[in-house]
């Protein structure tokens, strides 16, 4: 596939990373196209990482008008109201990202504001054809429904398009990965072996009964599902929660735990409270989660390294970055 050689300019710029993943991987990166929607702190970190890595193109989608709060963990946009008045988040980030690496095409795709607004559920602007252009799709700050719908569209495409969602709340972060059926080669001792990973879709993963989840599954996984469900039921804009919601969320937790026959202590109050209250981003966590996400997208595109399957969790209070493999047990299917 890799007929073209890297240019002298590319070799000089990417020297240090070619030493990590090789020239073939760099060539594949430079031919890849990434769609990114929902440009808050963690995703901004991811954009920086992927543009520096030298992908072919990045398409940004976020029609929100820039506000102080949206910029709390954003280092792309100069602190000058004159510069950002009236422009959308995607437009402003685009200018700055172009500057990071002139070899990457960065553009803005308007529409699909439904990603950030539950009232618009049709996703009419983005049909399957639109997603066909991309090798990887990363969405953030969006509803449960959007996650499921976009994931399904990626799965309908003829070519394999990697799908990711990422969300950070308080000092916690969650990444979901769907690479569908992913084959990669891995060095085992002296020989190279082919490995096949089968990923469930987001919908399949989150509908796995809690009783059959991996032992001692990250409490963050369960807490995030409760809050996600709560936002959906209440019709909230994703992330728009506060401590005042705790009582209702606790009710929902009880219902869900009863349905799944899981003890409520698996989702501690303290954790729910933090996730509901901490809507302002914590930049160190954005850097960590955005770094892991960048690394994973690079792995999936370049075919180098074992990709993570299929959830990643980070919580700054214990400092652990954990991978959970959550899929339907075959026997139950």
């Amino acid at each position: 596939m890799d007929g073209e050689e890297l240019t002298e300019q590319e070799t000089a710029l990417y020297d240090r990373q070619i030493r990590v993943w090789g020239a073939d991987a760099q060539r594949r990166l430079s031919k890849s196209h990434i769609l990114i929607s929902g440009l808050k702190g963690t995703v901004i970190e991811f954009c920086k990482n992927i543009v520096l890595a030298g992908v072919g193109s990045v398409t940004l989608n976020d029609d929100r008008i820039v506000t102080e709060e949206l910029l709390s963990a954003n280092f792309l946009i100069p602190s000058d109201e004159n510069v950002y008045s009236g422009k959308t988040l995607a437009e402003l980030c685009c200018d700055s990202l172009k500057d990071f690496n002139p070899m990457v095409r960065v553009s803005v795709e308007k529409g699909g504001s439904c990603f950030h607004n539950l009232l618009c559920r049709e996703l009419s602007n983005f049909h399957v054809d639109f997603f066909n252009k991309f090798d990887a799709v990363v969405i953030s700050s969006c509803s449960l429904l959007t996650k499921k719908t976009v994931n399904e569209m990626c799965r309908k495409l003829l070519k394999r398009t990697a799908f990711y969602t990422v969300d950070c709340r308080d000092s916690c972060g969650e990444i979901f990965v769907d690479l569908q059926n992913y084959i990669y080669s891995k060095k085992k001792g002296d020989e190279t072996v082919e490995c096949l990973l089968e990923y469930p879709s987001f919908e399949e993963a989150v509908s796995v009964p809690w009783r059959s989840l991996p032992r001692r599954v990250s409490k963050l996984y369960l807490a995030m599902r409760v809050i996600e469900k709560f936002e959906e039921l209440e019709g909230r804009i994703p992330g728009e929660t506060s401590a005042a919601d705790l009582l209702n969320v606790q009710k929902l937790r009880k219902e869900l735990c009863d349905t799944h026959s899981v003890d409520e202590s698996q989702i501690p109050d303290a954790l729910l409270e933090r996730l509901l209250e901490g809507t302002r981003e914590f930049p160190p966590v954005c850097a960590i989660v955005g770094g892991i996400l960048g690394q994973e997208v690079i792995k999936a595109i370049s075919g180098k390294g074992d990709p993570l399957k299929n959830f990643f969790f980070f919580d700054a209070t214990d400092g652990k970055g954990i991978i959970e493999d959550i899929h339907k047990q075959k026997a139950e299917g």
Binding site: D15, R16, Q17, R19, V20, W21, E45, K48, N49, L52, A53, P283, P284, V285, C286, A287, I288, G290, G291, I292, G294, Q295, I298, A316, G319
Partner: peptide
């Protein structure tokens, strides 16, 4: 060149993660 220059492999993502951990 890598051997003679004793070049350390480096990528942006690891540095970003490590910087986040330093701040914590």
């Amino acid at each position: 060149k890598g051997i003679a220059g004793n070049i350390v492999h480096a990528v942006a993502t690891t540095n970003a993660i490590i910087a986040g951990l330093i701040v914590i």
